[in-house]
Design a protein around this nucleic acid. Sequence first.
DNA 1: CGATTCCCCTGATAGC
DNA 2: TGCTATCAGGGGAATC
Length: 289
Amino acid sequence: MPELPEVETIVRDLNKEVQGWTFFDVWTDFKKIIKKPKRFLQFKKELKNKKIKKVRRRAKNILFDLSEWKTLLIHQKMTGHLLVGQWQFKNGKWLPPAGPLSEKFNTFIHLLFTFKNTRMLALSDLRKFSKVELWDTKELDGSEYVKKLGPEPLDKNFTFVKFKEIFQNKKDKIKQALMDQKVIAGIGNIYSDEILWEAKINPLRQTTVLTDKELKRVYLAIKRVLRKAIKLKGTSISDFRTISGEKGYYEKERKVYRRENEKCKRCGSKIRRIKMGGRSAHFCPTCQK
DNA sequence: CGATTCCCCTGATAGC
DNA sequence: TGCTATCAGGGGAATC
């Protein structure tokens, strides 16, 4: 599942590739993936001849700023992959040439943009949870959805004072608060587990009872873990790939996520997995208090 | 209003 | 072996 570090990796890579590309056509075999505008033909028509100015990230969304003040939003949810390359249509499927792109998830391409320079951008998504929307830039940036998103954890303005203010007022378990996009943007199941291990805090703790010292550890862990994950181009534990089909390296750094019954790398205890609100949380019961 | 459950999907895996 | 039930989970909607 792409979270902040994975989406950031994608956005940085995309900016090196797609700036200046002009949309030519759109193909899909699953119109439901496009949420806005509702009619596919209109979506197609509105994209045609728009040029990509730059790509940015907000929370886990990839935002393509286009000419004429349009913005294309792509949220990859669990299993979405954006891939750039030269493609060919064979036997009813879009297929890449040989190379790292020739992996199984490429058979799950459900949306494909072609550009005037004959290049293509594909969205593959095994489970079809991805969401694609085309907005007026101003309308998107002023939308309820964007306004309600929490701060970007790696933003300079996201100070400890600000963090403390938000988390001390949020009545929730710390793990859930970290994953709540309205509290703080971009963190999901993998990195909330990793951040809490780093901070030595039990995921079940209520945010309101955390001491200043403990909050400071969480705050620092957020920055440290996310920065390191970006440096390593993310985690490929759930099939993440960069836009050229390469894996991220953070999974080797992983301390708790999907390591149930393995040894804690700090104290040697068995990592436990519990259910929290329908999601699994992984932690060390000995050193996370 | 807040908290919980359901739902969208489909491949992998566990259980029989 | 092969079938079926369960699980994975981001996020929005529906429900309690």
